[in-house]
Design a protein around this nucleic acid. Sequence first.
DNA 1: CGGAACGGTGTACAAACTGCCCGGTGTCTG
DNA 2: CAGACACCGGGCAGTTTGTACACCGTTCCG
Lengths: 157, 157
Amino acid sequence: MTENLDSLDARLLLLLADEPRMGVLECSRRLGVARGTVQARMDRMAERGILRGFPPELDLAEMGYGLTAFAVLEIAQGHRAPVVEQLEAIDEVCEVHATTGQGDLFVRMVARDNADLQRVIDEVVAAPGVRRTSTSIALSTPVPPRVRPLLNRIAEA
Amino acid sequence: MTENLDSLDARLLLLLADEPRMGVLECSRRLGVARGTVQARMDRMAERGILRGFPPELDLAEMGYGLTAFAVLEIAQGHRAPVVEQLEAIDEVCEVHATTGQGDLFVRMVARDNADLQRVIDEVVAAPGVRRTSTSIALSTPVPPRVRPLLNRIAEA
DNA sequence: CGGAACGGTGTACAAACTGCCCGGTGTCTG
DNA sequence: CAGACACCGGGCAGTTTGTACACCGTTCCG
């Protein structure tokens, strides 16, 4: 794999990032290339696994889940798998990472309100194998999840 | 706002989550409702801000950014804004949250390899106003970002 | 050198989808 | 009871999609 992504790929992705509902035809017009080319690029990126799809982006806050919290879990030796299984079963757990450091798990979760959050946190820390936990609530999100800068860099190359 | 989301809305979102490229027509067929209904639901959710759009989902690892790291920053009194500005300027910084606890910032970043990560971390912690930092690398992601369970719960209601 | 492989351009056509409008029906509410 | 509201089913014009085909310049290799 020489170049995973070239400028055209990146510009295409930027376009789609701005206007995801935009069709292949419109993309080709804006990029100044043939429709077939755009189609080929998208297919190729999809095959390579770079472009996974176009999932709907939901605003959990607007759905009633206005609170986001993070938890760092310290796990007892060899209990990672069962703990993860436990966490997976909790609807409000939206993301789990295994990290270096204390050999911990990092958990992101959401809740409707403080009482609800309390309940979720209790469920999370109650998982057998969890030694120590430290949770914090997200007050704001100065930088929402983004990929743009990285794409821009490639696009300009 | 009586019910933010009803069962039909949730089932529609689940459908779109599975097959985002699916058109309105196909959705209506699978849900057993009229096309206009699906259109109306989507418009309404979009207006309410629940459905923000359909951004392309990219696999950063496949794009060459195989490393993900998290950093917790302790900020000097009143320096939050300038620090955030600094972080925003770093391409590899993909997400920043302000959290309770030590009144900190929580940062997610990616890098191409260890050397690259070193550079990124240096840039992050070099921001003036940053007191103390603690970083950890993501080894794996047992639970990738998901919303499904929450939608399922509403869908079944 | 000749030729194959590759990626891009244009073109074409049938099938499908979109946006939009309408009349009809059932339910909830003032 | 009349209205408002949401859904159904149908229709229409315009656009897009999937796919196929011919053509051309570059690169790589026997």
